[in-house]
Design a binder for these strands. Structure first.
Lengths: 202, 202
DNA sequence: TGCCTTTGTGCGTTATAACGGTCACAGATG
DNA sequence: CATCTGTGACCGTTATAACGCACAAAGGCA
């Protein structure tokens, strides 16, 4: 159950924060006004705290409420794998269903080439080269990517990445069509799937 | 009681979202898997939902949990200037009305501090540190930014940037509420929550 | 070593979250 | 007009959050 998983994640995160601050459950209970028995249950994922209790905890720990629960992941979209397993990928921003995007830091080995199939229809991708040299294949043609310059292209077409002789590191942001938002509007009349804006190439 | 005020605010916000989307309690109950009686109680601030219930609601409404409790965005407004003239700023991705976001590369001089007023309501900001050292002031507290790690926070609150002794270069992405999103959230309650912003991902 | 303190967990009790069902009301229809 | 449907609020019941207390275990100290 996703909800239960979320309680577990947040509980573990809360424990980690408390321990990092060197606080016992008793001390944390004093700070937050939540009983230590309850704090223990929350940390162990055995109970799902109410918003009021979360608020007390956040206030006692002097954390924003949003920060306190940020350990619980947003619902994941049905993303296709972006990069193959041989490529080092780190998440910079996890998928956010509201923004309908996610950002990865990708590292290619020297001279490495990666060809990507088309992602789901309506996907756009941003690339920002951080280090090294990189070429992108768009519409069958390779072009150099300037460092710290943004390159935005349609990710729903085949494209490729080719690293220079010293490797490369770049940010890759996937913008997915916001179909999730459209679903929320299904009760309204005439809601059609949002259409693409005109081609955006740069 | 601060906790009760928070329940009331979030309940009012939730009702506003639901009504803006033209959903009845019954329909929202179907979408979320939370009973309509409970949704009603939550909206009226008569009950403090557990995290598990909040999670169900967020999932049903396809909202990030943090967004659900952070309050929604206001209707769209025009872009405000982001950085003062003394700071080197290069456009990485120009404003895109479809995505409702833009990205800059910002360079601060060694030891330079920049305090930013709140941008338009509903704005979120991403920071990715590329070079040097950087601290961000969020909710009046300075925190170090890890390199190549994403920091997402509410840009509609005052915040600050402070560069290390060797200066710093970072990407700043402004996410503005789009007109579609604004439609969903047109009845944002007045922001009374004392603590906002913070990491949405890390 | 014994004693004391601290720590986290379990238990029983109380308060409240969460539910399904019901109802009053408003609006639409024949 | 009567009837039907949809809506939000209320009510009683069940499950669980939240609590204070007790206790076993660990750690520190003389």
């Amino acid at each position: 159950m996703a909800a239960e998983v979320d309680d577990v994640q947040i509980g573990a995160d809360l424990r980690a924060r408390r321990q990092a601050a060197g606080l016992s459950l008793a001390r944390a209970a004093e700070l937050t006004g939540v009983s230590k028995a309850m704090l223990g249950q929350i940390e162990r994922g055995e109970s799902s705290p109410t918003l009021a209790t979360l608020w007390k905890i956040a206030r006692g720990f002097r954390l924003p409420l949003t920060c306190l629960i940020a350990g619980g992941a947003a619902p994941a979209a049905e993303n296709a794998p972006v990069f193959s397993k041989e490529i080092a990928v780190a998440t910079v921003f996890a998928f956010d269903p509201w923004l309908a995007q996610e950002t990865f830091e990708v590292t290619l080995q020297p001279g490495q080439t990666h060809l990507s199939d088309a992602h789901m229809s309506g996907t756009w991708e941003d690339v920002v080269l951080l280090d090294g040299a990189l070429e992108m294949q768009l519409d069958g043609q390779w072009q150099a990517v300037a460092q710290h310059r943004g390159l935005r292209f349609r990710g729903d077409r085949p494209h490729g990445y080719r690293s220079g002789p010293e490797g490369s590191t770049f940010l890759s942001t996937m913008h997915y069509p916001s179909s999730e938002q459209a679903e929320l509007k299904q009760a309204e009349p005439k809601q059609a799937e949002p259409k693409q804006a005109g081609d955006k190439d740069d």
